[in-house]
Nucleic acid binder design. Structure first.
Lengths: 216, 216
DNA sequence: GCAATAATAAAACGAACGTTCAATTAATTC
DNA sequence: GAATTAATTGAACGTTCGTTTTATTATTGC
C-alpha cells in the first residue's frame, strides 16, 4: 500500500516531534528505536525519513528548537529596568515557568547532549552559554552596585541554574504545589542565596508575596 | 586460545568496574557495547559474563555500590552534635566532596536510572530517598529551633541537592578552583539559602573561613 | 607432576538496529 | 479527468547488539 486517506505532511511532522520528545524523555535517545517512534505516530518507520534525514538530525532539531524557545521566552520577559533584583526576579520566573511547562523537552536537551556530533554539540552549547551569560551579567551588576553580595558570580550562576532546572526532576503537575507556589519559593531562595537586600525587589513584583514575606 | 598468562579474576573484575564507569559516563549505558567495554579492559566480550551475568546487572552493581558508598561516607562524617548548622555543614561538605571525587560514578547513577528494571530502580531510589531524608531532618530541626528560616523543607532539600550535585556538571579538577574553595562557596550559599544565623556555624568549623567571612 | 579448577578465546546465535528503495495510492493542479 | 505531486507502505540491506556455547590454556592444590 501507499499514501493513506487523510494523510498530511505538516500534521505528521508535528506528531513526530511530539512523540519523539515524549519517547526520548522516557526511554532515552539510544534506547528509542525509529520503529518504536513510528508506531507511536501510527506510521511505518520509513515514513519518518521523509521529515528527518537521520535519527540524530531529529534529536538535534528538538534540542535546537528548545533552546531557541528558551532564548525567545527570555527576550520577551526581560524587563527594561536596570535594577538587578528585578532582572533576577524575571530571570528566575521565566526559567522555572519555561522548564516546568516543557519538562520532557528539557529532559531531552539536558540528558542527550552526548548523542550529538561534535559540531552539533558545539552549536547547542553555544546557545546555552549565551543564555547563561545573561544570568552572570545580572549577578555581576548586582554585585557591583551592592544590591547582591556574591562570592563568585560564575559559580553562583551555575549553582542557581542547576537548582532551578532541577525542578523538573521532582515536580509533577497537579501534585502538592502549584507552579506559582514553586516559583515563589525558588524566587525567595534565590534572593537569599545572592544576599539581596530585603524587599528591594518584591515591591515591584506582586508575585507570591504572601508566602515570601515570612520566608525571605 | 583460552586463559592468558597472568590472568586474575579479581583484577579483571576491578578493571571491568572501572572501565564501565568511565565508558558509561562518557557514552551512556545504551550506547556502550559489551564489546567496547571488553576492548577497554583488554579481553574478549565473552569474558565479561564470568563476572556479570547481564549488562543490566553490571549497571545495577555500579549504582548500588555508589549509593552504598555515599551512605557510608555520610555515616562516617555525621557529627554527634545536635546543632542544625553544624550538621548541615557536615552534610554539604560530605556531599560535595564525595560527588566531586566520584564524578563519573555520580553521572552514571543520575543519568542511567531509566535503564534499570522496575525492581532494581525501586531499590536504588529507596537508598537515595533514605539519604535525602537525612537532609530534610536537618532542615526541619533547624526550622523548628529557629536556627534556619525555611519556607518548605521538602522543596528546600531538593533544591539544595540539585544545586550541590550539579557541581559535577561543570567542575573539572585542576582548573580555576580547588575542591576546598568550591566547597567553601557552596557552604556559604547553602547557609544563606536556609537563612542561617550568621556565624552560628562557622566558629565550630575552621573550613574555608577567610572567603566565607565576606560572602556570608 | 597430575588432577582439578579458574579464566579466557573464538565462533556463533537470533534479534534488533538505522536506513534505503521501489512500488503504490491519495490529493492537488490544470 | 488526466497529469503531477505528496505521502506512505512493505520489503530488504548490511551491521551491530547482548548473550551462549564449546574448546583451550594457565594456575592451584595435593
Amino acid at each position: 500500500m501507499a499514501r493513506t486517506t487523510g494523510s498530511d505532511g505538516e500534521k505528521t511532522e508535528a506528531t513526530i516531534r511530539e512523540a519523539a520528545i515524549n519517547l526520548i524523555a522516557r526511554l532515552g535517545y539510544e534506547a528509542m528505536s525509529m520503529r518504536q517512534l513510528a508506531a507511536e505516530v501510527g506510521v511505518q518507520a520509513a515514513a519518518l525519513y521523509r521529515y528527518f534525514p537521520t535519527k540524530e538530525e531529529l534529536l538535534f532539531t528538538l534540542m535546537r528548537e528548545h533552546m531557541e524557545g528558551l532564548t525567545e521566552a527570555w527576550e520577551a520577559a526581560r524587563p527594561v529596568s536596570a535594577d538587578p533584583a528585578q532582572r533576577l526576579s524575571a530571570y528566575v520566573e521565566n526559567h522555572i515557568a519555561f522548564h516546568i511547562e516543557r519538562r520532557h523537552a528539557t529532559h531531552v536537551s539536558n540528558m542527550e547532549l552526548r548523542s550529538l556530533s561534535p559540531e552539533r554539540l558545539t552549536q547547542i552549547l553555544r546557545m546555552r552559554t549565551a543564555y547563561e551569560k545573561e544570568l552572570r551579567a545580572i549577578l555581576r551588576d548586582g554585585a557591583e552596585t551592592g544590591a547582591f553580595s556574591i562570592d563568585d558570580t560564575g559559580l553562583t550562576a551555575m549553582a542557581l541554574i542547576q537548582m532551578m532546572t532541577g525542578v523538573i526532576v521532582w515536580f509533577r503537575p497537579g501534585e502538592r504545589l502549584s507552579i506559582a507556589e514553586v516559583t515563589a519559593t525558588y524566587l525567595s531562595m534565590t534572593m537569599r542565596l545572592v544576599g539581596a537586600k530585603i524587599d528591594a525587589y518584591s515591591a515591584a513584583r506582586p508575585f507570591g508575596r504572601a508566602k515570601d514575606a515570612v520566608a525571605f
